[in-house]
Design a protein around this nucleic acid. Structure first.
Lengths: 328, 328
DNA sequence: CCAGCAAATGTTTACGCAAACATAACACCC
DNA sequence: GGGTGTTATGTTTGCGTAAACATTTGCTGG
């Protein structure tokens, strides 16, 4: 900076003013400074800036596994959204979702140059780590019921589930089976609860819950079980991947979809419309979730306090070809 | 830090030593300092550290779209790998893959607190932006032919393609069609070139190239064309999503896979084994690519210079149920 | 024609840390 | 017992920036 100042024949302070776009610099001077910057290839040192300003203009995102579409889409939206506000996004991968690992991430985080954190995670793991968070770092959580401690942004799991289950009931199915996500996942928990609740509302008895782990492979295994039950004519899968595996298992055992069994997924991943048959599913607006996270976190930074409570992003049922009335 | 020093009854330098784990501090003193740190909730300020040390311990990753599995897996591996070396990863999303946007990202990058950059991108866009890179920032590129300017890590596109095409020829198909990726993508280019080359080697005439844009939807559209050609009995799709759409189109037009048409994909995404039929595809080791990127970039930082040349990560043909000999 | 003021620019300082250097305390040897 | 080395700790300094304050310049109005 000093070099630039010398070359432009001004003080370093004036260089700083130009570099930060402050008013009160003559057009003439400004041009000279910019020219000098260019000539010397000057770029402001962000460490010094951060030191002086006391903020990093960076948001940390804690997540384990980018294996699920949802996390990735959300992350993408967060990054884009943050960038448009002049914030960078730093990734904090947590390899194994154990309490230790999560605490570890928070510990690393403490040394990290971030002003705020967005946690995309099954957050029962978060509780014990709470205390170690540096106080001035704002937190927003996705996909969790931590609403009484943090700001939470989530999709409307219950609404989407209700729409899916009702759709199947309206087609005439006596009841709806559920291929749920892994234990310990709040999204899975929510969807299972809403499934049970919607059936109860309609006076139907929920069949036993079948569990997968979100993967297509686990959906396939579950499908092997369900294919053996002729009374099962409608399945609500907790995500599209499991639905995919489920359909494959049904198909391999001669149960046609949707002729014999109707299947609904959740997420509406990009490929869902190209499955065989094209999958009816619940669309989630991950981009909106990401956007809201950034908005919330920036608002918190301005206002200084965490807001409690949960913001829900609506879901939408996308009807394709994997659902139909039950066989006569 | 000064507060900690005062409370522990030592100098701030000693606090620094403890905080950085230097030798030459009595066990006694160390304990007192640690206690003081804990009591005051001391967190080292990373901006000040970075300023003093002249490095950020952060790697920037430039990518557009996290829509493709490959990019995401690679990113994940980069993040994990970097974390294990004590480096953070900052994400630089480029919304639209235009020259301007890319240059823009590089401009933002210049202000950004990173020591090195990994570019995951179709890199013909990179060329014009090259010059603006700050000289001390090391670059590694994924998925590109920029090997003469940068260090490049890539999967062995050609090898994978050759294995796929040969597999189909060995099954007895007269020739192999190719559902290619979008123009301007180097991966797509490589795969198409290798496809042509392998056919030529075997003395077969390549049919016209059909293009998609990586999406399942585009694969479906291409499939509509191919389904109308009875002479087409084997298709090598440039990725699994397009293969998925292709299979759906074929299925809808009464062409059985693999009975009438064999289909091979590329990538081996997690769901490929659950497609109907389970997809034969070329497995890419994205995790290895990510790991090698971090390794290369850190090595460059140590050694100060960019290494030219390309490192190839081997691929592997995964034979499932979507390929078979041609109909009699 | 100069007091008085605003706009443009310069000077000083501190952000928090760690490298470099300085000092103190102690052990060991001849 | 004084020199010599070794280890533990303290002091000074500067990293690059921008806020706060100081100064200069140019202009206005009475």
């Amino acid at each position: 900076m000093a070099d630039v100042a010398r070359l432009a024949g001004v003080s370093s302070q004036t260089v700083s003013r130009v570099s930060n776009g402050y008013a009160g610099v003559t057009e003439e001077t400004r041009r000279q400074v910019l020219a000098a910057m260019k000539e010397l290839g000057y770029r402001p040192n962000s460490a010094a800036r951060a030191l002086k300003r006391g903020e990093f203009r960076t948001i940390g995102v804690i997540t384990f596994s980018l294996a699920t579409t949802g996390n990735v889409r959300t992350l993408e939206a967060i990054a884009t959204s943050a960038a448009s506000q002049g914030y960078a996004v730093t990734l904090l991968p947590v390899a194994v979702p154990t309490q230790d690992e999560v605490s570890g991430a928070f510990t690393r985080l403490e040394e990290l140059a971030v002003d705020a954190v967005i946690v995309i995670m099954e957050v029962h793991l978060l509780d014990a780590a709470t205390l170690t968070l540096p106080p001035h770092v704002q937190v927003v959580v996705v996909d969790s019921d931590a609403g009484d401690h943090y700001t939470v942004v989530d999709t409307d799991q219950a609404g989407g589930t209700r729409a899916a289950v009702r759709h199947l009931l309206e087609l005439g199915h006596g009841t709806v089976w559920h291929l749920g996500g892994p234990e310990g996942s709040f999204a899975a928990q929510r969807r299972a609860d809403a499934w049970r609740h919607t059936l109860a509302e309609a006076g139907r008895t929920p069949p036993p819950l079948v569990r997968g782990d979100w993967s297509a492979e686990s959906g396939y295994r579950a499908g092997l079980e369900l294919a053996a039950r002729p009374e099962c004519t409608a399945v609500f899968a907790a995500n599209d991947q499991m639905a995919l595996g489920l359909v494959r298992a049904l198909h391999e055992h001669g149960r046609r979809v949707p002729g014999d069994v109707s299947v609904i997924g959740f997420d509406d991943i990009a490929e869902a419309g190209s499955f065989l048959p094209p999958l009816t599913t619940v669309h989630q607006d991950f981009a909106e979730v990401g956007r809201l996270c950034v908005e919330a976190v920036l608002r918190q930074m301005r206002e200084g306090g965490p807001e409690r409570g949960t913001t829900l992003v609506p879901t939408r049922l996308v009807t394709r070809a994997s659902t139909a009335p039950p066989p006569a």
